[in-house]
Design a protein around this nucleic acid. Sequence first.
DNA 1: GGCGTTTTCATTTGT
DNA 2: TGAAAACGCC
Length: 716
Amino acid sequence: MNLKSLNINQRKAVEKIGGPILVFAGAGSGKTRVLTYKIAYLISEVGILPENILAVTFTNKAAQEMKSRVSQLVSSEISGISIGTFHSISAHILRRDINLLGYNRDFTIYDQQDSKALVKNVIKKLNLDIKQFDPKSMQIRISNAKNQLHSMKYIEDSIENYTDKKFHQIYSEYQNELKLNNSVDFDDLLLLPIEIFKNNPEKLNYYQSKYKYVLVDEYQDTNKPQFEFVHLISSIHKDIFVVGDDDQSIYGWRGADISNILNFQEAFGQSEIYKLEQNYRSTKNILEAAWSVVSKNTHRSEKKLWTDNNDGEKLDIIAGFDERDEAKKILDKIVSNKYKLNESSILYRTNSQSRAIEDELRKSGIAYHIVGGVKFYERKEIKDLICYLRVIVNSDDSISLDRIINFPPRGLGVSTVSKINEFREKNNMSFFASIQDCSNIGIPDKQLNTINDFNKLINKYRKQSLNEKGSQILDNLLNDIKLKDYYYSQKTDEALNRWENIQEFLSSIVEYESNNPNSTLASFLEEVSLLTDIDKWNDSNDAITLMTVHSAKGLEFDCVYISGLEDGLFPIVRYLEDTDIEEERRLFYVALTRSKKKVVLSYAKSRRKFGSDPILSVKSRFIDDIPEDLIYEKIVDKSNFYNNKVNIFSKLSKPMNNNIKVGNLVEHKIFGKGKVLYIDGQGENSKLTIKFYNNVTKKLILKYAKLKLLKDTYEK
DNA sequence: GGCGTTTTCATTTGT
DNA sequence: TGAAAACGCC
């Protein structure tokens, strides 16, 4: 095999066989190339069969690309190879073996919305106050516990107060309910295979000998369960090859554990480490800017990217008066630039920032596509149909059943449903099982008849699903439940639009079936829950791409616009305590290193948050970290327009009665004394985050809060 | 008891 | 801005 196109370190990493290998691969250093060549080398030079290789990528799209590149290199059939994300690989293992844990193979995969709904049901079932135990934060806490591999026993042992105690109850009941529903959440997808391996040595043994060589991409973003998974599979043969870059670790909030990569050697034993430090992607100026940011971090492995590329263009900085003006100025840049639209991307920290930019793009007629945000399959009208399909495949799935039992409205409201729920809780049975036989629990005849009709409908489709295609089932179902009439009768644009989306959904399942001839309805549902926007994205259309920095990981563009560079937004701050500034810096580093040729940084001097009055903002400290000599042009708003607006602001700000700063001790009429943790914006509209002495944290608008400043000293 | 309408309230990032 | 909860009408 010809390895001439690899540099010396890349080549060493590819040719080294036997034992654990860690490749530190900086941004743009040819990481994908190394992985692709490594797999091809294993197949064509070492003689390992494709079906004995497990390669884990970060997105499904990356998996597809890697597969097709490898097959080009080896010129032989590789369809037996396992390439995919942790979640899709785990899902496949569970489809085969989940019965060992007492679930059945038709299990549903719950997204966070479903999980939250289940947590909420559990809280209600345990008669706890929904205000005191917020379903969303309980769900996050459960997810964190799972990502930390905390066992139920551990959680029980570390109960310190009432909240902990109730949390333990909620978590444990949540897990019971999941099983009763024959459903798994995203975290279970990773945890259950590990449980299978631990309880069934012969299964572990099977996968250990099936996957003789294990490769992991983006290793810096693996969490504890993912580590455990690959560690178990490779623990005998130790043939594991991981690639990553600690500087690009941006998923700490999701449990990604940077020590996985930093402690690789300790975990896997005697191993080889290679460093790829030559960057082939970006100009010197971009790399230097990126370096000036990330080198401020203290927790990182020592390395510095370099490049043979030329200096290239310097960076531009744009400041808009507000988010709309920022967007307009970005558009001006896009128009005057020489870079192609499909080689350009506008990045932001939060999805909500896309709106202002989208509006301006639409006005000026520039083509764009947007990745992320509210996903297609999460739209209400689509999710409703998915829930029908889920119930048809897995009738134990109560969360989905709950969603469709009265959609479209058929006269089964809250009181009927809660009667059924009481009944099923008493008998610890699934929702569907309880509607089979609920004639003696005080439901009026009218509703009872409706339930029977609904029951017949579902059973009809359960039978159909055994030999009909999913697309056919969906088509029949749409007619049966008269959805078209339902939406058309509303006579609103929104309803018509929803019906159009449903048509699109129908064609997506048709397309899926033609691409996957042996597919089932269950496999379609699995794909739907694991596929992300980025997996479907392609840059072939002549359109600019809008997405979050997180979504842009692994991608590259000629020209990258990084917008919303304001303190508090990027780096983002909620509560001072839980902001990981180093991770924010890495995120900015990832954003910069997406660019090959040109970087444009932008911020707005004021910004509206969900339609409210504008709040003055301050330019990001990250901009100040970049040396002046790397900046070409600063387009700062000096127009009268801006100055006028500023005057308006200063007028508004006049009645400001005090100068409250972060760290000050203040007193509120109702909440009492507290410490100012964070101030969002400036002037009387600024929003203060205050932690009061009763341990309650509140966000208050300065002009309404009527705070008394008690102590004007900074506390650490 | 169901269902449409009004009000509230919350926003990082995503498999 | 948009979804979920609370409200109030049939």
